[in-house]
């Protein structure tokens, strides 16, 4: 009945699939690194931090303003969305009930599925003009932080939701039995015991915020500069790749691949960090 006569053949082909899938990430690192290597010899590794500015046509490749831009964007977005994500998860477990909760959960799930280009488009059409009324030009660090915040909020809320689910019910009942109020129970029993689960989720969201391209590209104005206020336009590392890949050649091209390599390595470090956190949490 089964077309393969030998079970070994099946196992071997499944193993092959698994090998290919896990090989993809190594291939990505390999190919991106390979294209980035020429930039290590010329302009040289330190040039990315010491050159006068980012003028690729004049062989000036200073990445510092864009690194700062990316860090400002990601940290702003994560700092805003982490508390709100936790509050939303607390609602899902301890406050909401019935139809309201059902509808709210659906809303978060659907918000998580809205594509980044639509967030960017909405930001460009609605948010940027609103900010422009306060301070020109509107396309700014602030717009980027807000859009990125809205984008990672649903996944932040969903991961916090999962982390809270893992808190043992007995712990919560014990806290109530001791006469703690609801707020006290949530803040000093539930959240501390969900700590590592929350941390793992948040680390992964940092990676997402650092790597987001389209939404950021569409609302931050893309001027290469170190921002002096939140109303200044900035350019993120990812946007820089998207904007310049089309015409980049030689050193310029390998500088862009170098940026890509930095992004992969940061994500790699974040994933390893979250894995080791997970392991210590499991081993407890």
């Amino acid at each position: 009945m089964f077309p393969l006569s030998s079970e070994n053949l099946l196992v071997a082909s499944l193993k092959f699939c698994a090998g290919v899938c896990s090989g993809i990430v190594f291939l990505i690192i390999l190919f991106v690194a390979n294209e980035a290597i020429p930039s290590f010899t010329s302009p040289g590794f330190t040039a990315f931090f010491t050159d006068e500015a980012w003028y690729p046509t004049y062989n000036q490749f200073n990445l510092v303003p864009m690194i700062i831009g990316t860090l400002c964007l990601a940290s702003g977005a994560v700092l805003l969305s982490a508390p709100l994500g936790i509050l939303s998860a607390l609602f899902c477990h301890f406050y909401g009930k019935g139809l309201t909760l059902k509808i709210y959960r659906r809303i978060i799930e659907l918000l998580a599925g809205v594509p980044s280009v639509v967030f960017g488009f909405w930001g460009l059409m609605v948010l940027v003009p609103m900010i422009a009324k306060i301070a020109q030009p509107g396309a700014s660090l602030l717009a980027g932080v807000l859009i990125l915040f809205i984008m990672i909020l649903p996944t932040m809320a969903l991961t916090a939701d999962v982390a809270l689910e893992q808190v043992p019910k007995s712990l919560i009942q014990g806290s109530y039995a001791l006469g703690y109020t609801k707020t006290r129970t949530l803040l000093s029993v539930v959240l501390p015991s969900a700590k590592s689960g929350l941390a793992v989720g948040f680390i992964l969201q940092v990676g997402r915020a650092l790597g987001e391209t389209m939404a950021v590209l569409m609302v931050t104005g893309n001027v290469v500069q170190i921002p002096e206020s939140v109303f200044n336009p900035i350019r993120a590392l990812t946007s820089n790749i998207a904007l310049e890949m089309a015409y980049a050649v030689d050193h310029h091209r390998s500088a862009l691949f170098f940026t890509g390599l930095i992004l992969i390595l940061v994500v790699l470090a974040l994933v390893l960090l979250s894995h080791s956190l997970q392991r210590t949490a499991d081993g407890r």
Binding site: C21, I24, V25, I28, V32, E35, L204, G207, R208, L210, G211, E212, T213, T238, I241, A242, M245, L256, F257, G260, L263, I264, V267, L270, V271
Partner: peptide, 11 residues
Amino acid sequence: LAGVPSIVFGL
């Protein structure tokens, strides 16, 4: 792989 930014997939 799940965490690699989409622009890097593009590269």
